[in-house]
Design a protein around this nucleic acid. Structure first.
Length: 377
DNA sequence: GCATATGATTTGAT
DNA sequence: ATCAAATCATATGC
């Protein structure tokens, strides 16, 4: 701040110095006046010159101040000044009118919204973390992921703190600079025509510049948050197996609909609700299950039998409740009916496997029939 | 530590 | 949009 002022003063004095030097001559010796003199003499000359320059600077500074003061006190000065102001006002208005627009930057708004959404700029610590904890508890349904969430929140708080301190710094710098410039302009407005509106405009320019710097801060903060998110919330990195219960429910559905293991949207929703997982997780599970089952039916046979028996038992119970005196329903072979239903998917997959194998051995590359369209939707 | 299991993602087809 | 298939990346059991 003070340095700038000093520099400006120096520049100012330099101007007046030049003006004076033309008039007064100053008695500076020409640089290439005489050649061949001894070194000591030249050093002395340089020293003299430097000294002169120093004193001139000091003198001219005072002179300039004095001259300025004299000019200010001139009897014609106010009149001249007002005329200059008027002229400038007239020319300045058109310029100002042309570039006076302040549309809210969509990019900035986007960043602001995101920072607000991520809890960086919006509510303070208490509300934000409480909400996050509540969300974690609701989504996770357990304490297993609370540790990583707290870690995440700690990092987020760190980012938020940095963001706020930086923002404050910018704000402060902006204010300081603005008041400095305003003071400077106000000071100068005594000697040259500067209207208050012009000062206002200058302040606007400064603010815009600073807000563009602020946007950079916001941008990098957003980036940091995104990186943090991808690090902590990327489900692929921190995969959790579903609960035993959930897997049970999903398997039950899968094996009891083996002929058509494609749950409808409603069924998926219901399964998701029962397993306390998302619908897309249900979709993923069925996608994985279908492909893995198909790839190696043998491996899943035991599981298939287990779940078939299980559903059969519950079905049997239901039937038994309805038809009390049934005697043909033996618990050893209850799943025959279900197995029949399963045929389609099993046959389908077996066929595909076979054709793939034959193709491999024969070298033929004909598309297996399963690819065509015997999928049931 | 390694093999296997498993949830998620990507790619390409329909 | 949804699916199959391949693939990735982590979890888990030994």
């Amino acid at each position: 701040m003070m340095e700038e002022q000093a520099r400006m003063m120096q520049a100012l004095s330099g101007v007046t110095l030049a003006g004076h030097s033309v008039q007064g001559g100053m008695g500076l010796p020409p640089p290439h006046g005489h050649e061949g003199t001894d070194g000591d003499g030249r050093k002395q000359d340089i020293g003299d010159i430097l000294h002169q320059i120093m004193t001139i600077t000091d003198q001219s500074l005072d002179e300039a101040q004095a001259k300025k003061h004299g000019l200010n006190c001139h009897r014609m000065k106010p009149a001249l000044f007002s005329v200059l102001c008027e002229i400038k006002e007239k020319t300045g208005l058109s310029i100002r009118g042309a570039q006076e627009e302040d549309p809210p930057d969509p990019q900035l708004m986007r960043l602001d919204n995101m920072l607000l959404a991520e809890g960086v700029s919006g509510p303070e610590k208490g509300g934000g973390s409480a909400a996050a904890a509540a969300a974690a508890a609701a989504a996770g349904g357990g304490a297993d992921n609370s540790i990583e969430h707290s870690d995440y929140r700690a990092k987020l708080t760190q980012i938020r703190q940095i963001y706020h301190t930086e923002l404050e710094k910018y704000e402060q710098a902006c204010n300081e600079f603005t008041t400095h410039v305003m003071n400077l302009l106000r000071e100068q407005s005594r000697t040259r025509p500067i209207s208050p509106k012009e000062i206002e405009r200058m302040v606007g320019i400064i603010h815009r510049k600073f807000s563009s710097i602020q946007m950079q801060l916001k941008q990098s903060t957003c980036e940091a948050v995104m990186i943090l998110r991808s690090r902590f919330l990327d489900a692929r990195r921190k995969r959790r197996n579903f609960s035993k219960q959930a897997t049970e429910i999903l398997n039950e559905y899968f094996y009891s609909h083996l002929s058509n293991p494609y749950p409808s949207e409603e069924a998926k929703e219901e399964l998701a609700k029962k397993c306390s997982i998302t619908v897309s997780q249900v979709s993923n599970w069925f996608g994985n299950k279908r492909i893995r089952y198909k790839k190696n039916i043998g491996k899943f046979q035991e599981e298939a039998n287990l779940y078939a028996a299980k559903t059969a038992v519950t079905a049997t119970h239901a039937v038994a409740a309805a038809i009390q005196n049934s005697q043909a329903n033996s618990p050893t072979t209850p799943n025959s009916g279900f197995q029949m239903k399963d045929e389609e998917f099993q046959l389908d997959s077996a066929e595909s496997k076979n054709s793939l194998l034959t193709n491999m051995f024969t070298g033929g590359y004909h598309t297996p029939c399963y690819q065509s369209d015997n999928r049931i939707q």
